[in-house]
Nucleic acid binder design. Sequence first.
DNA 1: TTGAAAGCGCTAACAT
DNA 2: ATGTTAGCGCTTTCAA
Lengths: 338, 338
Amino acid sequence: MVHGNPSRPRLGDVAVAAGVSTATVSLVLRGVAGPSVATAQRVLAAAEQLGYRPDRAASALASRRSRTIGVALDLSNPFHADLTLAIQDAALRQGHEVLLATVTARQDENATAETLLDSRCAALILLGPRGPVPELERIGRQVPVVALGRPLISEQVGVVRSADDTGIALAVRHLVDLGHRRIAYVDGPPGEVADIRRDGYRRAMADAGSSRWTRVVPGGQTEDDGRAAAPAVLRASGRSVPTAVVAFNDRCAVGLLAACAEAGVGAPADLSVVGFDDSALARLPQIGLTTVAQDVRSLGEHAVAAAVRRASGDGEIGPEVVVPPHLVVRSTTAPPGR
Amino acid sequence: MVHGNPSRPRLGDVAVAAGVSTATVSLVLRGVAGPSVATAQRVLAAAEQLGYRPDRAASALASRRSRTIGVALDLSNPFHADLTLAIQDAALRQGHEVLLATVTARQDENATAETLLDSRCAALILLGPRGPVPELERIGRQVPVVALGRPLISEQVGVVRSADDTGIALAVRHLVDLGHRRIAYVDGPPGEVADIRRDGYRRAMADAGSSRWTRVVPGGQTEDDGRAAAPAVLRASGRSVPTAVVAFNDRCAVGLLAACAEAGVGAPADLSVVGFDDSALARLPQIGLTTVAQDVRSLGEHAVAAAVRRASGDGEIGPEVVVPPHLVVRSTTAPPGR
DNA sequence: TTGAAAGCGCTAACAT
DNA sequence: ATGTTAGCGCTTTCAA
């Protein structure tokens, strides 16, 4: 880059301006005890006046650490946007910067993590990582890693997640309270998250005394998956058709809703539908999806805290953090018709 | 970070393994001519075998440049997600990495750009930057900057954008063809983009011979803004009520649609609505918004190309790139009722 | 074709 | 309380 970066001021420039050594400037700027108040003020003034900004790359190189937290997300997932915003906020409040990298068809989870690694992030937060555990552990051996939203047991990887089973139970209980008995569940993509939610569904149904009627329909995590699940949900006749459905997540629920509407099955008149995440999607007036809301703020806060704790190596690494979700009732649920 | 980063292999390690100097390894790995094919192969093999990955920070520090493109986006804007995905793809194809940073309530455009700058990005792509031009130029003096989606004239800032006026004209023409005459426009937030789209609306109306009836209603760029615009759109009685509306963007259109529906005004039966962007929002079956689609792929490609060109300093910087949009007709437009 | 050596901008002992 | 002096991992002249 021949580009005209009029070489921004460096530590040395500040040192000269303040009439001290670079070491002193470094100490002052990092708030390390030592320099006298007088020099500190001179240095601060000089830095301010020159518009000095430390070079993270150089700093990271020299100190073998950084205050940058890398986040790997899937931009096509609206819920990830919410999570990331929360993480960014929490990180800023805790004095850290955030760098994002997105998973795409061309750049898988691994490559995304590597990109972040190459930029010397102090720690990585992976949103809903789907790759094999050994893979995650491999990354975890190179840098502190926190998996957000995926339950897994590993020394190498920190975990922050919502209580998915509780969340599904809230949804089922809500439907049961409305009078529903035949409540189906549209499954998610293979993985621990789907396992927990599915189990949560089965247990909640059993707890509600409705264990005789359960139905798990194959689904997925995108709108298309939800759409594809519709026939299986609506199939069968008479009393065997569900009056309500809990979907793996909001996107899935939205696809399901669309397909049902096309089939002449309206929500909540003919079918109650509950989603999971409370993403921006669910909040759209046109959708108005009753859904299990994950506490995004708390998840972000804990994820950053865990990442920082692991990165600084002090204190206990601590067990996984499980955040309770809550139900948000909107307009896709109602008492069963007839 | 005391963390157990088992110090990944360094250039020196590869050099030792291959029995050459670090200088040679550096040359080979960067594909610089010089080393013989034989040494090159040995080096490549050694690097591969050790799982060597260059340290971007060190590399950037030493070479005073990087192959990382920083993108500043607003995660709460679904269209930005689409754009970013396209940019990521294009960058990868052109051999560059992408780092993202999001604008939030706490971290404004400026701070976001600085974060990216601190990580030594070779260039910045700002998605729909809203800050004052001098501000952008200040950043542009420090690093090559490309503004995506905002028309502005400046030596310091490259511009890649859609032909917004043409886009609006497509929308108006579509409505006119359907038989609409009273077509209103819901404005966007203050700025060049809104100016161009508004002018496009006025011109298109004039071209359609409908210049006598025009109406520009204050709006904005979020769902709430669209929602707030509804009363003004629906106000007035008799023949003075519009039969169709073009909104500044999809989010605005979606909010407007919701408010209209609540007021008993259905689309497209009572009112046709056209959005702008063709974001994921518009594609939702529940929304099915007729909208002006920006060519995301092309915009991303050009933005990256412009950023790289500016960063490498070779070739002409070139004028702004304007990409033609096209109309996507879905289900919120139809001939006027009655 | 290859290697030696001097930095890039910063941090971190170790001196003073 | 402050300065000196090595590096961090890489690139890049300049010599060989």
